[in-house]
Design a protein around this nucleic acid. Structure first.
Lengths: 220, 220
DNA sequence: TTATTTTTTTAGCCTTATCTAATTTCGTAA
DNA sequence: TTACGAAATTAGATAAGGCTAAAAAAATAA
């Protein structure tokens, strides 16, 4: 099954929205995610339904099929491999890579991706800590917990971020909270849920509950 | 001036066709080069004319403008840099890179190209020996001569090929005539113009005039 | 259960890039 | 200088992707 660039983007959005534990994904949600109008989404859902990458019942939202999941994971794999390339080889900052990867992920060449994967030494996670699916769509994901849910004295490593907006990533960079940083919860304020964190055994950092809830930690 | 992918491809074709010393490029020539129909070309020429990247007088063919030349050279720069990347970093064979580079050249990110250029160490020629324009569209091209026009005992380096079809490139690979190979004309057959060539001071090679005319040599 | 609001879809139009078929223009040969 | 063939352009379709406005269906409230 070959998809156009637009179809790939819709499918990826549907995959991500499905991931959030919902039974079915609504037209409006997809429109919001894709920054288009619901009318355009309806049209595209009909097309994706015909191609059997989603199950589409009018007025009742969509489910992604196994076939669709596989295709979405291929696109995600390409996106994340390119992000690794941009950061590790071309010295992009991790908050600058998303837009470009969004274009690069649509290049059609299985050989290119195979070679890129090998060249990057078969990375398992992208610069934001998200897992890179393998050729078959399998993902090795580590169990992760939101930083705001950790208890005092627990420690771990920053594994990923939930909000990967440029603004948030820049903030994290500024305070030295990179992916892989070792952290320990020194204190939690009952009142507002804000936290005091020790980063890499040297810097302490105050963080609102809001910020902490967007940071995923691999506990240790 | 921002061009769509299709417009970029047309402009590149017009640039290449202009390069062959013609005063103006015809609709039919462009259609042949782009593998589309003349009717599609007429339409596109109107659009490119409106964007002032070509000068278009109906029924009289087109001239590329300075603005158009600059844009075409930017696209060519991107194409050739990606080719270098694919061959040098991802171990593609030089006859496998064209299609993929054709897609990669349309990625829109000046920063990406700057970084890629630096990462590749500012290469001046692509794997086929064609010069890579700089950011401003300047090309350092070396004077080159067709191999079939060289005299007995003259020597030089293979600098580029005129026909870069996969079949021809594979043939060259097989006989060990890579870009940069040092060659010397040992003999020329008057009758059919075929040549006997010494490659890298060790291998001798017989070559028809036809093949030789597709190889460009930097004389020394 | 009916009425209202929200969500989704349909209908109809736009743009880009392509095509075929018909028409127009050019250049040249008679 | 006219007539003809080649080259180029226009006209009218199609397909993808997006839009607005209107209609229909579903969900919610009274």
């Amino acid at each position: 099954m070959i998809l156009t660039t637009a179809e790939e983007n819709y499918l990826k959005a549907i995959y991500h929205l499905s991931d959030e534990g919902k039974k079915s994904v609504s037209t409006n949600d997809i429109a919001a995610e894709m920054k288009t109008k619901p009318a355009s989404v309806s049209d595209m859902l009909r097309k994706l339904g015909e191609k059997s990458v989603i199950e589409y019942r009018k007025y009742y939202g969509v489910h992604i099929t196994e076939e669709g999941k596989k295709l979405a994971l291929q696109t995600i794999r390409k996106h994340r491999l390119w992000e690794v390339f941009l950061v590790e080889k071309l010295n992009f900052a991790w908050d600058e890579v998303h837009e470009v990867a969004e274009e690069l992920e649509h290049i059609q060449s299985p050989l290119l991706i195979q070679r890129l994967d090998a060249y990057l030494n078969f990375p398992k996670f992208d610069p934001h800590g998200d897992p890179i699916p393998d050729e078959y769509g399998d993902v090795r994901s580590r169990p992760r917990i939101q930083l705001n849910e950790m208890e005092i004295d627990q420690s771990g490593q920053i594994a990923a971020v939930k909000d990967s907006s440029a603004a948030f990533l820049r903030y994290l960079d500024k305070v030295g909270a990179y992916i892989g940083a070792r952290i320990k919860v020194l204190d939690k304020v009952e009142f507002d849920g804000s936290l005091e964190i020790l980063v890499d055994q040297k810097k302490t950092l105050f963080m609102s509950k809001d910020v902490a809830s967007n940071i995923l930690v691999l506990q240790s």
